[in-house]
Nucleic acid binder design. Structure first.
Lengths: 344, 344
DNA sequence: GTTAGCACTCACTTTTAACGAGTGCTAATT
DNA sequence: AATTAGCACTCGTTAAAAGTGAGTGCTAAC
């Protein structure tokens, strides 16, 4: 177990390094107001901390920097929850002053706010649509057998897709089909939509089998599409450029390349279990491209249904305090807005 | 006027520099097969070319590199149109093997192809929707006075927006309204849609003034939105990382930042007049962030109308030959596909 | 008009030296 | 027994010096 003094020193090292990006030496620390003991004492303590694997030195004659374990300890034990000031809270509220009707826009807005707040890159995963329910289907025939299918969920989310039938669909046939399907299927969770639709098809096969089969394919496509490429938004990509650790293109490149890849982002963000804030540091990300990054992520949910992820990505030396607090408070405001939009 | 030998040397310098990114010296040139004269002669000619402002030296004891004027001359006079080989043409065709129904996807696909082909970054501006005509409007009431409005053009392009009415709109009212408006407005060019809608509103004011006014606002929003943020797609951003001139973050940053900004891209790409391929080199871009870049851009059009832009962005030292040829041929295939989708 | 020859330039690399922030250890101090 | 002052040592960083070589411009010869 660490002594109080060791805790103080460790915290000071991490805080300092987060601020300056420079290895922290014993002399620097000894000058702090909250440090009453000498640099030699600090050196002794540092040696112990290093032995425990909490800090390390880039080279013999440099100061110390936190190791991944050190950051981990800092995050787990040393962060002061530093509640947001009422003034800031007020400011945060006012950021959502005029509410945003569409969830997509709301998400974008939120991501941008978060990256402005923290100066890190924000990554938001849109709501899983599975949990949502169908509100309306619309089939709009174009010329030459091309058809636009539009799907609206109860939260007002819209998906659409154009597809090519091998025979033209008349306006009348389309609306008859839609009317029936809307009657039957409204309120169906998207996750169950496919199988329900199949049921419907079987039931009405005789009447308009051809179109219905095609339609089912179309819907399949819409649903698959949206499942495979859920809404991802990146905010504050440019903030990466400001981090001293990413001044080297070789360091910067893999990170930017990774977050531009939708699939990679999904793979990376999906396995997020509980509702809490989750912090992964460096190699904990299990992604080589992010070995020098830390990620703070939080699930958001509406009415208990957990639906998407809000993530903050920065260097390992990121300001965890600020990051966590920003994400917590923004998440709250965000969920409130989302809730408004989801009232049905 | 330049002599044949000077042309040969200039071309050799540009070609070489494009390939190696290293200043080209007289000795190097004298070793080429197509050069029969000595390095001293080359030095003399180089001095003349430099006097004319076509080449320059980074410093006294380096070889020569093309000046912007030199690139300009090269592009205007020295490029061999180097027709694509039948094999490549075939390959290009097959890239569009299975046609893509939606223009948006087609554009994305094309951009990715182009950047794969050239190893530069591609920037595609979607078609201006103004020229397109309304095919269908759909108004879908959600709970609590929220309404989704969906607009479909004759080419199958879909725009949608959610808005908040101050009183709920019934399903029936919505469909009555829509039926009438669709009858009247189908085929209206989007550019004329707003004023036409106003007309309609005036005519039917007595019947359902409240909703119609709101609807007009909604449509306004949809149209404005789509005008302000037309479809932009970027392909091959990562290719920038490979260019030796952008290994320095300070050089790379402004370029990446610029192309991420939709408005900036628009400002930059919009004033594109004719149908030809337009090449701007370095400062010709009139954008500070692109002072070290060249841009090859081409308009695309279908049946003479509906115009967007396909652009290739790379270092000044880009392979103009390959770029131009790739864009020309891809443009052709692209337009053919687009044409198929636009048959109405 | 062309070319060989040569002195000169200058970025780049390597070497050397000086610097200084920081360390670890030891002995003195509290 | 814990703390601290003192000091030799390490090592990255910076600056200056020296050497290297690709390339140039000029001149004189062909």
């Amino acid at each position: 177990m660490l002594t109080d003094r060791q805790l103080l020193i460790l915290r000071a090292i991490v805080d300092d390094y987060i601020k300056t990006a420079q290895p922290v030496g014993s002399r620097t620390l000894s000058k702090r107001d909250d440090v009453t003991f000498s640099s030699a004492t600090i050196r002794n303590e540092m040696a112990d901390l290093e032995e425990m694997g909490l800090i390390e030195k880039p080279h013999t004659s440099a100061g110390r920097i936190p190791s991944e374990l050190g950051y981990r300890f800092y995050v787990d034990h040393l962060i002061r929850p530093e509640s947001i000031t009422p003034k800031e809270a007020q400011a945060l509220k006012s950021l959502f002053a005029h509410s945003v009707n569409e969830n997509d826009r709301l998400i974008r807005h939120t991501a941008d706010l978060l990256s402005d707040l923290t100066h890190y890159t924000t990554l938001v995963l849109g709501p899983k649509e599975e949990g949502q329910r169908l509100h309306h289907l619309e089939l709009i025939p174009l010329a030459e057998g091309r058809v636009v299918i539009v799907l609206v969920t109860e939260t007002g989310h819209v998906e659409h897709k154009t597809l090519q039938l091998n025979q033209a669909l008349s306006q009348e046939a389309a609306s008859r089909l839609m009317e029936r399907l809307n009657q039957t299927l409204r309120g169906t969770p998207l996750s169950a939509l496919r199988s329900r639709l199949l049921e419907e098809i079987r039931r009405f096969r005789s009447e308009h089998s051809e179109q219905t089969v095609l339609l089912s394919k179309a819907l399949d496509l819409v649903l698959t599409d949206q499942e495979e490429r859920p809404f991802i938004y990146l905010g504050g990509k440019a903030n990466m450029f400001d981090q001293p650790e990413f001044q080297d293109v070789a360091k910067l490149r893999p990170v930017l390349e990774l977050i531009e890849q939708q699939e990679a982002v999904l793979d990376f963000l999906r396995p997020n279990l509980d509702n809490q804030i989750l912090i992964t540091i460096g190699s904990e990300n299990n992604v080589d491209a992010l070995k020098d990054c830390s990620v703070i992520r939080a699930h958001y949910s509406v009415d208990g249904v957990s639906i998407g992820t809000l993530a903050l990505i920065g260097p390992k030396r990121m300001d965890y305090n600020r990051g966590i607090n920003s994400i917590i408070h923004l998440l709250q405001a965000f969920q409130t807005e989302l809730h408004k939009n989801n009232l049905d």
